[in-house]
C-alpha cells in the first residue's frame, strides 16, 4: 500500500492545485496574523474558514482524483496487487497531501509569528487537527460517491450536494427542528444532532477549546458540560474517528465488488 500511497502523493504534490491550496493557506495565515496582530482573533477567523473550506476542498479533490486516475487504477488492477491496497493507497495519498497543505500552509506563518512561545499553541494545534480530520472524512465520503457513480457529472454533483448538506442544509433543518420543538427540553437532541455532523462536531470542539463557549448561549453550557469533560472529549474524538473509519470501510467493500 505504501508504494501506491507514495506515487499518488507525488502525483498530487506535483499538480498545480496542491500548490494553490498550500499558498492560499500560507497567504491567509500571514495576512491574518501580521495585519491583525491578535492571535486569538486570527484563530477564530481561520476556524470559520477551515470549517467550510477543508470539507469542500476534500470533497472536490476526492472526486476529481478518483475520476482522473481511473485509467491508472485499471493499470494497477492488472498488477499483482490487492484491490484494497490500491484504493487505500490512493485515498491516503489524496488525504495526506491535502492535510499536509493545510498544516504546512497555516503552520509556517504561525511559526514565523512566534507561536511556539505563545499560549495559543494548543488552540492552534487543535484547529489543525480538526482540519486534518475533516479532510480525511470528506475525501473518504467523496471517494465513496465517486466509486458508486460511473458517471462523472453525477458523482461530482452528488459530492457537492453532500458537502452542501453537511455545511449548510443540515444546520438549517436542525434549526427548524429546534424552533418547532421549542417547548420541549432539547439539550439531548442538540447534543446528538451536532455530534452526527462532522462539521458541527468540529466547530464545537474548537469553540470549547478556545473557551468562547459563551458564544453558544444556553446550549453552550450543555455542550461544555458534556464535551468539556474527559469522557466528552474522548466520545467526540471517537466520533470523528468513526467518521473516517466507516467511509473507508465502505470504500474497501465497494471496491471489492466493482467492475473496471
Amino acid at each position: 500500500m505504501l508504494k501506491i500511497l507514495k506515487y499518488s502523493f507525488y502525483d498530487l504534490m506535483r499538480s498545480r492545485w496542491s500548490y494553490v491550496y498550500f499558498f492560499f493557506y500560507l497567504i491567509l495565515g500571514f495576512v491574518l496574523l501580521f495585519l491583525n496582530n491578535d492571535v486569538s482573533k486570527a484563530i477564530i477567523t481561520i476556524m470559520n474558514i477551515i470549517l467550510v473550506l477543508t470539507p469542500l476542498i476534500g470533497t472536490i479533490f476526492g472526486v476529481m482524483y478518483y475520476y482522473d486516475s481511473r485509467e491508472f487504477t485499471e493499470l494497477l488492477l492488472a498488477q499483482p496487487l490487492k484491490r484494497s491496497t490500491i484504493f487505500m493507497g490512493q485515498y491516503f495519498g489524496v488525504a495526506i497531501s491535502l492535510a499536509l497543505s493545510l498544516v504546512l500552509g497555516l503552520g509556517i506563518p504561525f511559526a514565523a509569528y512566534g507561536l511556539f512561545q505563545s499560549s495559543e499553541i494548543w488552540n492552534f494545534s487543535s484547529l489543525l487537527v480538526t482540519g486534518a480530520f475533516l479532510t480525511f472524512i470528506f475525501v473518504a465520503l467523496s471517494y465513496n460517491l465517486a466509486l458508486s457513480y460511473e458517471n462523472k457529472i453525477k458523482g461530482f454533483g452528488f459530492a457537492i450536494l453532500m458537502w452542501l448538506f453537511f455545511a449548510v442544509i443540515y444546520d438549517g433543518i436542525f434549526l427548524i427542528l429546534m424552533m418547532s420543538f421549542n417547548d420541549y427540553p432539547l439539550d439531548k437532541m442538540a447534543l446528538i444532532g451536532s455530534s452526527l455532523n462532522p462539521i458541527d462536531l468540529s466547530r464545537i470542539l474548537i469553540i470549547l477549546k478556545l473557551d468562547i463557549s459563551a458564544l453558544l448561549g444556553y446550549t453552550g453550557a450543555v455542550f461544555k458540560n458534556f464535551f468539556g469533560t474527559m469522557s466528552g472529549m474522548v466520545t467526540s474524538f471517537g466520533l470523528l474517528v468513526a467518521w473516517v473509519v466507516f467511509p473507508i470501510w465502505r470504500i474497501v467493500g465497494k471496491s471489492r465488488k466493482k467492475d473496471f
Partner: peptide
C-alpha cells in the same frame, strides 16, 4: 496485460512510471 486505452497519471514522468511498475511487481 496491455490495456486497450493507454492512459497514465499525467504528472508522472515516463521513467518514474516504469520504475513504479517495476517496484510494484
Amino acid at each position: 496485460y496491455l490495456p486497450q486505452i493507454a492512459q497514465f497519471p499525467v504528472n508522472l514522468k515516463v521513467r518514474e512510471l516504469i520504475e513504479m511498475i517495476k517496484n510494484i511487481r
